[in-house]
Design a protein around this nucleic acid. Structure first.
Lengths: 108, 108
DNA sequence: ACATGGTTTCCATATTTATGGAAATATAGA
DNA sequence: TCTATATTTCCATAAATATGGAAACCATGT
């Protein structure tokens, strides 16, 4: 992970529709959902949905697979995991307050 | 935490210069750094730096305090923590692969 | 081959965001 | 008060991003 790729991942969820799509997929689990179901659930018109799914897919945060004439989209947990690790990396120099109840790799 | 505020936080670090600034501050710790030091470290011209620091400050991911004629900027770990929690919330419905070596609140 | 339903591409438009020089503002020290 | 240094605001410009209708594309079942 490096700055540029982290920015791509972050940008792909730094948008209202896409963040909702991503969270929906995270909560649905590994199987994911067909594009149409996502669109109906979140009330997003087809072309707009397709645009956002493409963005998420390009960044790598969302995977897709064809099942008959449906295309299933699912969260890529591994990629998200790398991003989270990168964001908390080397936190923090002081023993003082850091990431309170989360992952802090450092030996305080 | 809700979609809109998470998007603001994400957008504030979904940009190369700002992500570098944020990570620098995360690694420096609670005391933070004066704006000028950040600029010199990352080679960012004053007005551009100020623009980005403002963005980070508005989102809440970065705090600022005046010390003499310097303005110190520091990472807001609590806010970042909330964001990370929100992103991993209710992951994931299936017992299958989830967030491999990170925080998964669910009882698999 | 045709019809149906799911999904994507094309396109024009509107909006948001990033950049950095120059000027303005603020704080501290002589 | 004058000067030096730190930081921000102003501004014009350039570039990237979001939206959704219409048309095209692609699988499946008849």
């Amino acid at each position: 992970m490096n700055t540029k790729s982290a920015v791509l991942l972050l940008a792909s969820i730094a948008q209202e529709a896409r963040l909702e799509i991503f969270r929906l997929l995270v909560q649905v689990g590994a199987d994911g959902l067909a594009a149409g179901v996502v669109g109906k659930t979140l009330q997003i018109p087809p072309s707009t949905l397709s645009f956002h799914l493409k963005e998420l897919n390009i960044s790598g945060l969302v995977k897709s697979r064809q099942v008959g004439r449906y295309i299933y989209y699912s969260a890529n947990y591994e990629e998200m995991n790398s991003l989270l690790a990168y964001l908390t990396e080397n936190c923090c120099a002081s023993k003082a307050i850091c990431y309170p109840d989360v992952i802090c790799n450092e030996t305080h």
